[in-house]
Design a binder for these strands. Structure first.
Length: 347
DNA sequence: AACACGGGGGC
DNA sequence: GCCCCAGTGTT
């Protein structure tokens, strides 16, 4: 790699995208951007970054916020544990570092929600430390460049790539090198149809030389999404509705939704509905219902919405629920499936 | 080592 | 449809 590193860095300096978080060396802003960009495309995360640093401009403002405020900013971005973990990490920084951002790789990696990649990114971008930031882009570039055929998700692959990149980054500007590798993977060495003709490190690339860009990286096929059947209950009571907050663990952790029951099929009204909601015979009427499909990476959700009108909420037996004004519902952090329901209901 | 965890965009 | 994205934490 050593021979082509100058080409790589020159290429990056000439053609890289201008992005908001590239204008700063403030570790807090870099951290926010890196967490937002975990498993998230730049164009999807861009506006979220602007909103986030506007609302929470420093460690202290984030540490003293409520999780719900952070989730509201995070709404729609997915992987909501990231928001909760950032809140925890901000409090760690207040408690352990007087609110300062730790300035070495291992202290950074000890913060909640920061793993190998993010620690290396912050340590190199903000503090010029020589740690390779190994994300999906860099794994792909490296697998092709060195001809690493090990399955991309294995520890053996990671260790080999890490070893090579440590040798490479040692002798150069670590921040520019990491940015350049990531940018190369995002813009040139793409998963399909890589633009080898404009690649600055083509001359020493194994995959280009042996025409193996289609075979590398070695990425075993993924599992099919599981199917799930969810029933949501829009419970209307005298101009108000029932909103329930999900537990902090699991999917959509900490977000709000209509009370929900999972069933084995979507066609019938769930047998345990009245028991779950705490409704009695004759105390409610079903005024509407509709079905729709919602796609996630790991789940295909067949959802059904039941619109109920009840005369009183005296007997509701749910956990973590609130009776709220209909007009207030969009002020709560909501997941996308819930937003989809509200849109269909014109709420 | 395998899984859980969202949502979206490119082809 | 399928791929996979500036990954991390848990089991």
């Amino acid at each position: 790699m050593q021979n082509v590193i100058p080409n790589l860095l020159t290429w990056y300096k000439n053609v890289h995208r201008k992005l908001p978080w590239r204008e700063t060396s403030n570790p807090y802003y870099i951290w926010v951007s890196e967490v937002i960009l975990q498993q998230t495309r730049v164009e999807q995360g861009r506006e979220y970054y602007v909103k986030f640093v506007d609302k929470f401009p420093d460690v202290f403002s984030l540490a003293r916020a409520d999780v719900s405020e952070i989730l509201k900013i995070w709404q729609g971005l997915g992987y909501y544990a990231r928001a909760r973990n950032m809140h925890f990490a901000a409090k760690q920084m207040v408690d352990l570092h007087q609110g300062n951002f730790p300035n070495d790789y291992f202290s950074i990696k000890n913060l909640r929600g920061i793993g190998d990649y993010t620690a290396a990114a912050i340590a190199s971008f903000a503090f010029k430390q020589h740690y390779p930031a190994i994300d999906g882009n860099v794994k792909r570039v490296t697998a092709r460049f060195y001809g690493v055929d090990l399955p991309i998700s294995t520890p053996a692959f990671y260790k080999l790539v890490e070893k090579e990149l440590f040798l490479a980054i040692k002798t150069t500007e670590p921040d520019i090198f990491n940015q350049a590798m990531i940018e190369l993977g995002a813009m040139v060495c793409t998963p399909v149809n890589p633009k080898c003709e404009i690649c600055p490190i083509q001359s020493e690339c194994f995959a280009f030389k042996f025409d193996k860009t289609l075979e590398l990286p070695n990425n075993p096929p993924k599992k099919k999404p599981i199917r799930k059947y969810l029933h949501f209950f829009y419970i209307e009571v005298e101009g108000h509705l029932v909103l329930q907050q999900r537990p902090s663990e699991g999917i959509w952790g900490g977000l709000n939704e209509f009370p929900c029951i999972e069933s084995l099929g979507v066609d019938e009204i769930p047998e345990n509905m009245m028991e779950y909601l705490g409704l009695e015979n004759g105390s409610f009427e079903i005024v509407d219902n509709f079905e729709f499909k919602h796609l996630l990476t790991h789940q295909t959700i067949f959802a059904k919405l039941w619109h109920l009108k009840v005369n009183s909420n005296n007997n509701l037996t749910l956990k973590n629920w609130n009776l709220i004004k209909i007009n207030d519902i969009r002020t709560f952090p909501l997941h996308k499936l819930m937003v989809k329901i509200l849109d269909k209901l014109h709420l």
